[in-house]
Design a protein around this nucleic acid. Structure first.
Length: 420
DNA sequence: TCTGGGGTCCTAGGGCGA
DNA sequence: TCTGTCGCCCTAGGACCC
């Protein structure tokens, strides 16, 4: 048996933990630069605010309905997530942290346990210790536990937010209930094609022939079908190092000069290098891209990228920044207004088994320099030590007009309670 | 004026050597 | 020497996830 534990409206719930006055009120959390809606409380969902809604288009609706908006505060969400995950790890021998707000638990060998009661106890403990409400679904396969979770979330009164699919009858009923576009692994394109072929729900989907599914949805679709039929294909996956690491941002304004972009690219490259060092790996390829604003059809468009194969594997901020700048110089074309750029490091290998190059290798002095920089930054926080080209004056600012304090990770932003 | 960011996996198709 | 075939590797692009 697998359990899927999913935090309800996670980012919005995190904000509410420290603002209990917002319980029962519509809350939305916005993406970086306060661009799109990326999380909504149930009350906000009832106002028909869609996921991904551009905030500026919905400002009027927010004002009219007293919607509380928050800029994304990933320091807070990340910390709250690790608290939830650490509680989960006390309940099952194998836990797979699937995303910031959900985890699969493997309950093999728990056949004699009352899973519904276990689920309720998990839910109660997480709510008491973190203030985050969760929904829990149990089933024989991961894909079915996703559906069980959905049922738990959709019918909290009837299920107490815990639902177990433990019979064929319940499985069939659940499959017939879930519309095809809501099935895990079926996105927009596939659901359109499936609907064109008369598939309305997950039950219709498992009636399709293996051949058709393989041809139209590849082996991934076929695996999904088996999972929905109750055949266990997917297992708990252990944490692995990332295969690519990206740092990309949209800008607060449009950039026109190479110098402006250089500063951003160095900062992005440095951030990627830091993440590489954090997981003790090096990269062998760096990609740099720059984009104009594709929403502005009145302006000339330019989307270019450069892929740089490195002569040697490295995780030095200085070296990766240097290669990234080389890439930027290749792709930069004067005369355009750039809105977004990014650095992606790929072809990642473990730090301790990097192939040395006969002629050229990473500067050995960088290793100790980077270790020292990481150590200082970890101790004082907020990336105080950076490359000179990185914008030490912090001219560049992300739009974050509704940012909440980092209650749980910064001592000077801790919650204060006033008494009369 | 204002529309996010960070990932993974799979397949098709081309190049290339055996 | 030429041609066909197979398998491997690489890349770009598409689809999905949160």
């Amino acid at each position: 048996m697998f359990a899927l534990v999913d935090c309800n409206n996670f980012y919005a719930s995190c904000e509410r933990v420290f603002r209990p006055d917002l319980n029962g009120k519509p809350v939305v959390v916005l993406s970086n630069n306060d661009g799109c809606v990326i999380a909504r409380s149930n009350e906000a969902k009832k106002l028909n605010i869609p996921m991904g809604a551009p905030a500026f288009q919905y400002q009027k609706l927010f004002d009219e309905n007293g919607v509380y908006t928050f800029s994304s505060n990933f320091a807070l969400y990340g910390d709250m997530s690790s608290r939830v995950m650490s509680i989960l790890s006390t309940y099952a021998p194998q836990v797979e942290i699937y995303s910031i707000d959900e985890a699969f638990l493997c309950f093999d060998g728990f056949e004699l346990f009352d899973l519904e009661e276990t689920g309720k106890s998990i839910r109660k403990k997480i709510l008491k210790f973190t203030g985050i409400p969760v929904s829990i679904g149990f089933a024989e396969t991961k894909a079915l536990s996703k559906i069980a979770n959905r049922i738990a979330k959709k019918f909290p009164e009837r299920t107490n937010s815990v639902y177990v699919i433990d019979s064929d009858e319940k499985r069939k009923k659940a499959l017939k209930w879930l519309s095809i576009e809501e099935v895990w692994g079926v996105g927009r394109q596939h659901s359109k094609r499936l609907k064109d072929n008369g598939v309305r729900n997950a039950w219709d989907f498992v009636q399709m022939s293996d051949n058709w599914i393989k041809r139209n949805m590849s082996i991934v679709g076929l695996r999904l079908k088996k999972e929905l039929e109750g055949e266990r294909i997917l297992e708990i996956e252990s944490v692995q190092n990332k295969k690519s690491i990206a740092t990309t941002r949209s800008f607060d304004e449009m950039y026109t000069t190479l110098d402006q972009l250089k500063e951003r690219i160095v900062t992005f490259a440095s951030s990627c290098a830091e993440k590489l060092r954090d997981q003790k790996t090096c990269c062998n390829t760096v990609m740099v891209f720059i984009h104009t604003n594709y929403f502005r059809e009145d302006l000339p468009q330019c989307n270019r990228n450069a892929v740089i194969k490195l002569p040697y594997p490295t995780n030095s901020s200085i070296e990766i920044a240097k290669f990234a700048i080389d890439g930027l110089q290749k792709v930069f074309v004067d005369g355009y207004k750039y809105k977004k750029a990014g650095v992606i490091v790929m072809d990642i290998t473990p730090e301790n088994s990097c192939q040395l190059n006969i002629f050229e290798n990473s500067n050995p002095k960088h290793k100790s320099l980077m270790t020292t920089i990481d150590k200082i930054n970890k101790e004082i926080g907020n990336r105080k030590v950076m490359l000179a080209a990185e914008d030490p004056g912090r001219k560049w600012k992300m739009k974050q007009e509704h940012l909440s304090p980092r209650y749980t990770t910064k001592l000077d932003e801790i919650i204060t309670i006033k008494t009369e």
